[in-house]
Design a protein around this nucleic acid. Structure first.
Lengths: 157, 157
DNA sequence: GATGTCGTACTCGGATATAATTTGTCCGAGTGCTTCGGG
DNA sequence: CCCGAAGCACTCGGACAAATTATATCCGAGTACGACATC
């Protein structure tokens, strides 16, 4: 039950991209966050495939948000990077062993799977209500100076 | 973001134990569920360490619930088997790189970590409100015959 | 016949290999800017 | 001076290793029951 570390990196990158005005190259994001450039590139590719960020090639290319920061939720990023398969996978134990239940009696998921699904649903609902814009707003409120302006300035240099 | 398969086995075993009247040996639980006996033993040991089940050695020994089925939540079992460390671990990226935040400005978790913590809290609250007794009740309601009685009968034989 | 003792078979517990997933890295394909030559 | 094309440097994208974690297994320590010899 461990989430990929790339999720954290991706979310930070998305916040940075929401503040940027021009495309940002992957190696810039890696330097800014002090993480392995090649591995971060892998995560960004996943974000690109999911349609969260758009990639521009060539000189002065890089990544930018494909949608408005208010239209991308944290859940979108998590699913893109970490995969959208549920954490708990029911292997239908009830249909195995000497007291196996008949398949026709198993139209609904078992009680355990239902409980897990409810829990994951609650988890997703929280993440689905937080957008990148919300995160950026919280980051701005957390510190004294204008952090986002500082990032924009650093990206330009 | 994948939960250990042992969690599912452990929960099924706990439901069985809540229906049993005498200690149940690990190999019986493994046979009943058709899972590798040695690996299931590992999970049961974790449950024992967590104080969820009590082990009795010697002939006619085995495992039984250490507490009442109404006093053990699904969250307890998940934490015992899968570990109680949170899925998302903040590596404090904000304190790294050229624009690192000063440690004295980082008294609170960052916005991303806060969001993830809220989501995991919601997840835990759902699992914390479901007890083994609730699961057993749902299982009984799901099927026609008295499944728990059938399990008791099979365990006795 | 009652009782103490020994043996045995069964139990759990932790230390130990194997497989899968995550993490980390590299090089090739593609594209836009720059520069150089010609008109 | 303006225009065109070629070169080039920079970008992303997918294919390829290493480390960590989950999975699976084995054997040893401990205990309750049962049998047996003795009193």
């Amino acid at each position: 039950m461990k989430m990929s570390a790339g999720v954290e990196w991706s979310l930070h990158c998305c916040v940075v991209l929401s503040a940027a005005t021009e495309p940002v190259a992957a190696h810039q994001l890696a330097t800014l966050h002090d993480v392995p450039p090649a591995y971060l590139a892998k995560q960004l590719q996943a974000l690109s495939r999911a349609g969260i960020v758009a990639a521009a090639q060539g000189q002065a290319g890089g990544y930018r948000l494909a949608r408005a920061a208010t239209d991308v939720t944290v859940l979108d990023v998590v699913r893109a990077v970490d995969g959208d398969s549920p954490a708990f996978v029911c292997t239908e134990i009830r249909q195995r062993g000497p007291l196996a239940a008949a398949p026709r009696d198993c139209t609904r998921p078992c009680a355990i799977a239902r409980t897990m699904a409810r829990a994951e649903q609650a988890w997703r609902e929280v993440l689905g209500t937080v957008t990148l814009a919300d995160l950026a707003g919280e980051v701005s409120a957390d510190y004294q100076g204008d952090v986002l302006a500082g990032i924009r300035n650093w990206l330009g240099a």
